[in-house]
Write a protein that binds this DNA or RNA. Structure first.
Length: 614
RNA sequence: GCCCUUGUAGCUCAGUGGAUAGAGCAUCCGCCUCCUAAGCGGAGGGUCGCAGGUUCGAUUCCUGCCAAGGGCGCCA
């Protein structure tokens, strides 16, 4: 999302040693000097900002600037003439091999080989720290993601949020942020009662009762395991004849296939009414045991979620329970603060929050007329708590369907803290499956655990992260679980494995390679494949910075694909083990060792393994 | 109706105020006596949804229109 929650970019990244960024600054200094002279000669003073960018095509050199194009109009001279004047005024530099004027007036810089080669030495020295900023100095940020309701297994949509949130957290941690990862457990509210009743009905089945599941309950088979556990642990202690459960409950009506919207709404209302009555009946019949059933149902679902996330290589620093916030008085205290500030009022028997005064479309209900808190109320208290715990920036990863919810949470935070920019929300667009259906209530869907079981964590995570998070994603299950060439994750992993294999070959032949000695041979890296690889390696640090600044791990995925492509192309054309030229061999091994290091560093941020053999 | 997002190759998607708009898959043609062929090279394939505007320059920024998805609860 654009706007108020954006992380400030004030902290300029300083790479640990000479590579692309200082080079860019160096060229900008040269250009600034030339610009000053050209402007003085022309008697002008208004100087445009110098735009200097990496080139897309090697034939345009390594960096290009459109400065002459920008100056053409104010100076009243043709762009190419301005470019020539600028180039003449450029101070000489040993790091620049040559400068060319091309196209309508672009100035292209070709760098000296040595300017690229040194990155290999940096990578060999820094190892897994290359490209990283572990200082934590940019600030503290709390990222909340997944937070799937503990009422059933996670589906492919949750998987996307998990892969995205975890990788983004890694990315932020790798670019100077102090990061805390949190999962908000929605273990309070009506949905939990629906879960409880659904499990209890399955339990009654275990007792031999003929039960019909309510149409808007949770019908999935996964609850049968919880029911069985309940039965095993407590026997028939919670048994009630099905007839007594059903007695006097309002009937569910079903809309016909060609129902109008009004008919559909009426049917839905009757089904919800039935469900509410069933919940009330369960509470009445079970008494204190209701909580026992509920606890077991929740624990089972949460355990399944934790197990899946663990398999998916996703870790959290903290799991925050909604119920614990309520029971611990956090919600009450948040409400008291709102009331104290005059931000609430009562209307129609409910308590409202004045969110409209802070940019929301309308005011929102905190406490319903029946005395219970809205989801919003508890979530608001949770966000206040996160801030109270000393995290000045909150980053929430939500499904795109929560879009309309952002304004009210931000409004509440602003109302209490005066800060508009404390909350940043990244919305994950929907995931569709290339085949099959999703939906918890259908009882028949592809779970995240299914994907992990069939495709593996690496392929699944990589597939999710190949698309920008704010774009719709079509998850091709067959492709993700294919062990074939088609699967994109192998392309990158294979590059890493190939490099490892080269070093294995070297060892098998009794050869040696020494990193320190190799640093003195880097001047031998001069062909086009080597230059391409060197250029990419040098761009890794800024790739991380850019990916983090735009909350876009997929940028890193594309970078790693490019890097793997450069390696594979190099591999196919040149031999690395060149027995008759030890110096060249040493230099090439240094280059591919550095490449393997960067691939490993990047994959680690994505939560994907870098196998040494495939 | 109002708000948000999206529209780029047959399919799935990157990308950018600049030079000839890219990748994977699919189709076709080549490359293993040699470090892993899960690889490499090449070919075909495009009105960057449509129309205006800003600009030296727009696929990119702005406006309108068309189309798709989502959101507009005292649900979570």
């Amino acid at each position: 999302m654009r706007g108020s929650g954006k992380i400030p970019r004030s902290a300029v990244f300083r790479p640990p040693a000479a590579n692309i960024l200082p080079m860019k600054e160096h060229l900008q200094e040269l250009l600034a000097s030339a610009l000053e002279r050209v402007l003085a000669d022309a008697g002008a003073q208004q100087a445009p900002a110098i735009q200097l960018d990496p080139t897309k095509d090697r034939k345009f050199g390594d960096f290009q600037t459109n400065l002459a194009l920008q100056l053409a109009k104010p100076l009243g001279r043709p762009p190419r003439a301005v470019a020539e004047a600028l180039v003449r005024a450029l101070p000489p530099s040993p790091r620049v091999a040559r400068v060319e004027i091309a196209g309508p007036g672009f100035i292209n810089f070709f760098l000296a080989d040595a300017a690229f080669q040194s990155v290999v030495a940096d990578i060999l020295d820094l190892g897994e720290r290359y490209g990283r900023d572990d200082s934590g100095g940019k600030g503290r940020i709390l990222i909340e993601f997944v937070s799937a309701n503990p009422t059933g297994p996670m589906h492919v949509g949750h998987g996307r949020g998990a892969a995205y949130g975890d990788s983004l957290a890694n990315l932020l941690a790798a670019t100077g942020w102090t990061v805390w990862r949190e999962y908000y457990i929605n273990d309070a509210g009506r949905q939990v009662d629906v879960l409880t009743v659904s499990v209890w009905l399955r339990y009654l089945e275990c007792c031999g009762e003929p039960v019909t599941m309510p149409r808007r309950g949770y019908p999935g088979d996964y609850l049968k395991a919880s029911a069985q556990r309940l039965f095993d642990a407590h026997g028939r202690a919670f048994h009630v004849p099905a007839a007594r459960v059903r007695e006097g409950l309002p009937e569910e009506s079903v809309a016909p296939d060609d129902a109008s919207e009004a008919q559909l709404a009426a049917a839905k209302a009757s089904q919800e009414a039935h469900l509410d009555a069933l919940i009330a009946r369960a509470r009445a019949l079970l008494g204190v045991h209701y909580a026992t059933v509920q606890r077991l149902a929740l624990d089972d679902q949460l355990a399944a979620i934790k197990s899946t996330l663990d398999a998916f290589n996703v870790r959290f620093d903290q799991w925050t329970s909604e119920k614990a916030l309520v029971d611990g008085g956090f919600v009450a205290r948040a409400l008291a603060r709102l009331k104290e500030k005059g931000l609430t009022y009562e209307k129609d028997g409910a308590l409202w929050m004045r969110t409209q005064a802070f940019g929301d479309e309308k005011d929102r209900v905190l406490i319903k007329a029946d005395g219970t808190a809205t989801y919003y109320c508890n979530d608001l208290a949770y966000h206040i708590d996160k801030l109270d715990r000393g995290w000045p920036l909150l980053l929430d990863v939500w499904g795109a369907d929560h879009h309309g919810y952002i304004a009210r949470v931000r409004a509440a935070i602003e109302a209490l803290t005066g800060r508009k920019d404390a909350l940043n929300v990244q919305l994950i667009q929907f995931v569709t499956l290339s085949s099959g259906r999703m939906g918890k209530r259908s009882g028949n869907f592809v779970t995240l655990q299914d994907l992990i079981d069939e495709a593996g964590t690496d392929a699944t995570r990589f597939f999710y992260l190949t698309r920008s998070h704010d774009q719709h994603l079509e998850f091709d299950i067959d492709l993700a679980r294919s062990q074939s060439t088609d699967n994109p994750v192998y392309y990158v992993q294979y590059a890493h494995a190939r490099i490892c294999s080269v070093f294995q070959q070297l060892a098998d032949k009794g050869g040696h390679w020494d990193a320190q000695a190799a640093k003195l041979t880097l001047h031998r890296l001069t062909n086009t494949h080597e230059k391409a690889l060197l250029t990419l390696l040098g761009r890794y640090p800024e790739t991380l910075q850019r990916a983090a600044a735009s909350y876009a791990p997929h940028t890193l995925v594309f970078f790693l694909k490019d890097l793997a492509e450069a390696l594979h192309g190099y591999y196919n054309v040149h031999r690395f083990l060149v027995e008759d030229d030890p110096e060249l061999q040493s230099a090439r091994l240094a280059l591919i060792r550095a490449t393997a290091q960067v691939i490993r560093n990047g994959l680690r941020i994505l939560g994907v393994s870098a196998p040494e053999k495939m």
